[in-house]
């Protein structure tokens, strides 16, 4: 049987193709229903003016009941944004990707939330525990039990 994830992702893909992405968000790669890549840019004045980031979404067969694993891509072309909730390995400490995930959220919904997380950043800095976390971090950020920092950053 086709997993519930592929059915739901098909619908999201169709919506992206018919309605387009919100400003600053672009679909880079959605060739299968396991992993999608999107680019993310903060529009207007922000700490990240002129910077373009890329996000990797990994889906389990139970998506959207289970949250996607979302992280910033780091390669020759892309870097992780310097932000108090983003670790230098691209992992993101955001409650909506963990215990505040809701199955009515979507790929684009997550992108928009992360876009506004970056937009509201006042000071570019790494999380205080960055080095310790990155040294022992699992490959999949969903395996991390994040302690969520404040919601104001």
């Amino acid at each position: 049987m086709a997993g519930i994830a592929s059915r739901r992702l098909q619908k999201e893909l169709k919506e992206i193709h018919t309605q387009g992405c919100p400003v600053g968000i672009q679909l880079l790669n959605a060739d299968n229903f396991e992993e999608w890549h999107l680019s993310l840019e903060v529009m207007g004045e922000s700490q990240y003016q002129g910077e373009v980031f890329a996000l990797k979404f990994r889906f389990e067969p139970q998506y959207p009941i289970s949250a996607p694993a979302v992280q910033f891509i780091i390669n020759e072309k892309y870097k992780a944004p310097v932000h108090p909730h983003v670790y230098s390995n691209g992992h993101i400490c955001a409650s909506i990707l963990g215990n505040e995930w809701s199955p009515v959220l979507s790929v684009i919904g997550v992108c928009v939330t992360l876009q506004s997380m970056l937009a509201s950043c006042k000071k570019k800095e790494r999380p205080p525990d960055n080095d310790r976390y990155v040294m022992h971090a699992p490959d999949n950020p969903k395996k991390t039990r994040f302690h969520y920092h404040d919601d104001t950053v």
Partner: peptide, 14 residues
């Protein structure tokens, strides 16, 4: 349905 995004009159993916 906000979860599966299929019409209420349709059925869930299962």
């Amino acid at each position: 349905c906000g979860i599966c995004r299929v019409a209420y009159e349709g059925c869930c993916p299962r």
